[in-house]
C-alpha cells in the first residue's frame, strides 16, 4: 500500500492545489433528491383528506356555537360566523332547559366534577394497590382473581347493571353520587389494575428485595419506594380515568337522579328534548362545553394519552 491511499493531515493542503485526478466521471457524493415526489404527495394528500374528515365536525361545532339563530337558518354550517356572539355559550351554561329545570349545563358540570374527582382518586388508589399486590405479594388465587377481572372487562355492562341497582339500593347508595363513584371504581378496575401490574412488574425485583432487607413492610414499600417512582404511570391512569368517567353516559343515567345527572346525560337531554324551539347554536355550545374537559386533558397530555391507551390495549 502506498501512503497516498491514506492521506495524512500534512498531505491535505497539497492535494487541494493539485488537479482533482482521483474522482472518475459519474455519480459522486450525496445523491440528488426531489423534495416532493409523487409518493410524498400521495402520503400528505391522504393525511390531509383524513384530517379534514376529523377536524370538520370540530370546526362546525365551534362555528355554529358562535352564530346567532337567524344566521344559522340562512346560511352554511361550514361558514365562519359573520357576527360573532357568545350568547349561545352563556345560554348553554346557565339557561338551557333539560326537561325538568332550566338552569343550563352548569349543574351537570359540577355534578360531573363531583363524580369524576372522587371516582378517579379512589379507582386509581384501589387499582394501584391491586397491581402492587399482584406483582410483589402474590398469594394463592391472586392470579385467578386477576384473570376474572380481565375477563370482566369484556362482559357487556348490560348484563350487570340491574343486579348492581339492587346492591346499591341495599347499601343505600342508589341515586347518589357516591353510588355512581362506586360503580366507576368497579368498572375502571380491570384496565387500571392491568396498567399498574404491567408497570410494577417492569421494575427490577431487586428494588423490592432491597426495601424488604431495609425493613419496610407492605405499605412502607408501596408508599415510600414504589409510588414516588411511578409518577408517569399515575399520570397515565389519571388521564384514562378522568376522560373515561367524564364521558360516561350509561351509568350516569341509570344510577343517579335527575338533580345529580352528570354533564353527558344533561347534554343529551338538552339536545334531544322534544319540546320547545331547537336552538342549534346553544346545542353546539353545550356540546363543546361537555367535550371541553376531556379535550383539554387530551391536548395537554399529548403522548401520555397515547401511551395510556396503547399500554392498556396492546398488552390486554
Amino acid at each position: 500500500m502506498s501512503d497516498a491511499a491514506f492521506p495524512t493531515r500534512a498531505a491535505a493542503p497539497a492535494r487541494a492545489s493539485a488537479p482533482r485526478g482521483r474522482l472518475l466521471d459519474g455519480p459522486a457524493g450525496v445523491a440528488p433528491t426531489r423534495r416532493m415526489n409523487p409518493k410524498r404527495i400521495m402520503v400528505y394528500g391522504g393525511l390531509i383528506v383524513f384530517s379534514i374528515y376529523y377536524l370538520l365536525p370540530l370546526w362546525v361545532m365551534v362555528m355554529t356555537s358562535l352564530k346567532g339563530m337567524p344566521e344559522i337558518r340562512m346560511g352554511n354550517i361550514f361558514a365562519p360566523p359573520m357576527e360573532i356572539t357568545f350568547e349561545p355559550w352563556v345560554k348553554a351554561w346557565s339557561e338551557a332547559c333539560t326537561g325538568l329545570n332550566c338552569d343550563g349545563l352548569s349543574r351537570g358540570f359540577f355534578n360531573s366534577v363531583a363524580i369524576t374527582v372522587p371516582a378517579t382518586i379512589l379507582s386509581i388508589a384501589v387499582a394501584a394497590v391491586n397491581g402492587y399486590a399482584l406483582v410483589n405479594w402474590r398469594f394463592k388465587g391472586s392470579e385467578v382473581f386477576f384473570t376474572i377481572l380481565i375477563f370482566g372487562a369484556f362482559i357487556p355492562y348490560q348484563v350487570m347493571i340491574y343486579p348492581i341497582v339492587i346492591i346499591l339500593r341495599e347499601i343505600g347508595l342508589m341515586g347518589s353520587v357516591w353510588g355512581l363513584v362506586l360503580v366507576h371504581v368497579v368498572f375502571g378496575m380491570p384496565i387500571i389494575t392491568l396498567l399498574f401490574r404491567n408497570y410494577f412488574s417492569s421494575l427490577p425485583p431487586e428494588l423490592f428485595k432491597a426495601a424488604r432487607v431495609d425493613g419496610a413492610g407492605f405499605w412502607g414499600i408501596f408508599l415510600r419506594v414504589l409510588v414516588p417512582m411511578s409518577l408517569p404511570i399515575f399520570t397515565v391512569a389519571v388521564i384514562l380515568q378522568v376522560t373515561g368517567i367524564w364521558n360516561d353516559f350509561l351509568f350516569g343515567v341509570i344510577y343517579t337522579r335527575p338533580d345529580s345527572y352528570p354533564m353527558t346525560v344533561q347534554l343529551n337531554n338538552i339536545v334531544n328534548s322534544v319540546q320547545g324551539v331547537r336552538e342549534y347554536n346553544v346545542n353546539m355550545a353545550a356540546t363543546l362545553l361537555t367535550g371541553l374537559v376531556p379535550l383539554t386533558i387530551y391536548f395537554l397530555s399529548g403522548k401520555l394519552f397515547v401511551r395510556g391507551i396503547a399500554a392498556g390495549a396492546v398488552k390486554g
Binding site: P204, E206, L207, A210, V213, D214, G215, R224, P228
Partner: peptide
C-alpha cells in the same frame, strides 16, 4: 424471621437504589 430481622445487609447486581431518594436517603432508609 423477616429479612430485616436477620442481621444481614444485601447488595444487588442492579444496585436496586431507590431512584427518588438521595444517596443519603438511600443509606438511611433502612
Amino acid at each position: 424471621a423477616e429479612p430485616s430481622e436477620r442481621g444481614i445487609g444485601m447488595v444487588f447486581q442492579s444496585y436496586a437504589l431507590y431512584p427518588q431518594m438521595t444517596v443519603e436517603g438511600n443509606l438511611s432508609f433502612g
